[in-house]
Design a protein around this nucleic acid. Structure first.
Length: 460
RNA sequence: GGCGCGGUGGCAGAGUGGUUAUGCAGCGGACUGCAACUCCGUGUACGCCGGUUCGAUUCCGACCCGCGCCUCCA
């Protein structure tokens, strides 16, 4: 029995998909005008883990994550760059796919693009107008009439009058109410546009998600996810549009990831303190970044700092050490560890609790190896790799993890040669000479591990 | 101002009405030529004040502090 925290009800609920054995999930993806940052990585990894676990539990997961490839920010950026906006979006989409792959994020089942769904968007707007939930204004824009939808605010727990009192909403003369939002934006001369019954223009931000999600998954689906700052207004507006248009319940469970902070300050575009994924991957192995993200609960706020990443690196290194030089058994029956792992994950995807199980398995492997029970250790190793896969961790060959080229000035061959020289010195009981070589390597970030079978090395 | 979330040992981070989270770091020991790795051992942790209870870090209430959203942002 899986329990998931639902933002709508503000509590954990037993997960019961609409159709037995199937899960339909939609997650708001990227607006592709810039490289993905750590906040995107968090959402990507969080829902990747959700997908992997649900599949592990036997569900057929239909995971849809959209790409917003038309929007004001995209047009502005393309204009600044002096390029056609599709060149910008093509480039950013490719970069996003590279970043995802490096972080071990599996591709979603479907990745619809807004520009490929203009017809659906227009159709939905037509329905909304016909049901008096939307109106075409004199300036050529079409707005959603917030007052026409009774449940407005049910996700973010906001009251319409409070929103209006806030008065930070754009005062746009053409709107009937300041809280109304654009479904269709009329194009200014020379802007990219699509023809519509209300004149040439482009879709508003929120409507594309309503159109794409219901198109790919049906009027009602199981899970809708996204970043923490999308809850309002984006998700609130999606609910209003979709339920007003279809007259049916939209997403049943709403999941929101926690925010990323940088040195105790919120990471955001406006503060300018954001790190792109590729920037971070210059300093840390991708799997370490993933481990860092997965080591705390997806809903909690995490603080990105050098100390925290370094600690994640040390911890992951320890897990890989347990696997080093060991060939996992082919197939191993379910163990108590699997049961405890599932127990943690069943409880709203408690990855921190699940990782504690990984450490227990690693300790068991090390104990068996010490006892010389190689076969039992191999069985445990199989369990560790099996559980790690559900979190998207520990799937590399340990040596590949330890020796990944991080741009140091020593090649693997150089290192092997020095290790041989040190072995010779040790054999001749020239320990001072041997230690000199080890120190020299240590200065370049190479750590040696001696064992009965010989010496292995890693980049530390 | 409105709405929401949170305060756990040196740090990171789960969880629970009464017996171990886990990891990193530290300390002691084993192993080692010495280290590293690993193993064994090691820490009167639950913001403050009341209440409920035989018993609360865990439930309830007040308070203090931090954070997020309310505007484009994952």
């Amino acid at each position: 029995m899986i329990r998931i925290y639902n933002t709508l009800s503000q509590q954990k609920e037993t997960f019961q998909p609409l159709e037995s054995g199937k899960v339909r999930m939609y997650v708001c993806g990227m607006t592709v005008y810039d490289y993905c940052h750590l906040g995107h990585a968090r959402v990507l990894v969080a829902f990747d883990v959700v997908t992997r676990y649900l599949r592990h539990r036997g569900y057929d997961v239909h995971y849809v994550r959209n790409i917003t490839d038309i929007d004001d920010k995209i047009l502005r950026r393309a204009d600044e760059n002096g390029e056609v906006y599709t060149d910008l979006t093509d480039r950013m989409i490719q970069a996003m796919h590279e970043d995802e792959a490096r972080l071990g994020v599996l591709a979603p089942t479907e990745e619809p693009r807004a520009t490929a769904h203009i017809d659906n968007i227009i159709a939905m707007i037509k329905v909304l107008i016909s049901k008096d939930h939307a109106y075409a204004a004199e300036n050529g824009d079409v707005y959603f009439a917030v007052n026409s939808f009774e449940g407005y605010g049910k996700l973010s727990k906001k009251k319409l009058e409070d929103l209006l009192a806030g008065a930070r909403v754009d005062v746009e003369a053409a709107k009937r109410s300041p809280a109304d939002f654009a479904l269709w934006k009329s194009a200014k001369a020379g802007e990219v546009s699509w023809p519509s019954p209300w004149g040439d223009g482009r879709p508003g931000w929120h409507i594309e998600c309503s159109a794409m999600s219901t198109c790919c998954l049906g009027n009602t689906f199981d899970i809708h996810g996204g970043g923490p700052d999308l809850m309002f207004p984006h998700h609130e507006n999606e609910i209003a549009q979709s339920e007003a248009a279809t007259g049916e319940e939209f997403a049943r469970t709403w999941m929101h990831a926690g925010a990323i902070r940088v040195n105790k300050e919120k990471m955001s575009k406006s503060l300018g303190n954001f790190f792109t994924i590729r920037e971070i991957l210059e300093s840390y192995p991708a799997e370490v970044v993933r481990y860092f993200l997965v080591s705390s609960h997806y809903r909690s706020q995490v603080d990105y700092s050098e100390d925290n990443l370094a600690e994640a690196g040390r911890t992951l290194t320890k897990l890989y050490h347990a696997l080093r030089g060991l060939v996992p058994s082919k197939s191993v029956a379910e163990t108590e560890h699997d049961r405890r792992f599932a127990e943690a994950m069943d409880d709203d995807f408690n990855t921190a609790g699940a990782i504690a199980v990984l450490h227990a398995v690693a300790a068991e492997i090390n104990q068996h190896r010490r006892d010389g029970s190689e076969q039992v250790a191999r069985d445990s190793a199989a369990v560790l790799v099996r559980l790690g896969r559900i979190l998207g961790l520990l799937q590399q060959d340990p040596e590949a993890f330890f020796q990944a080229d991080t741009g140091g000035d020593l090649s693997a061959e150089d290192i092997e040669a020095l290790i041989q020289a040190r072995a010779d010195a040790r054999k001749a009981r020239d320990f001072a000479g041997a230690d000199r070589i080890r120190d020299e390597l240590a200065e370049k970030g190479i750590i040696l591990d001696d064992s009965r079978e010989g010496t292995t090395w890693r980049r530390g």
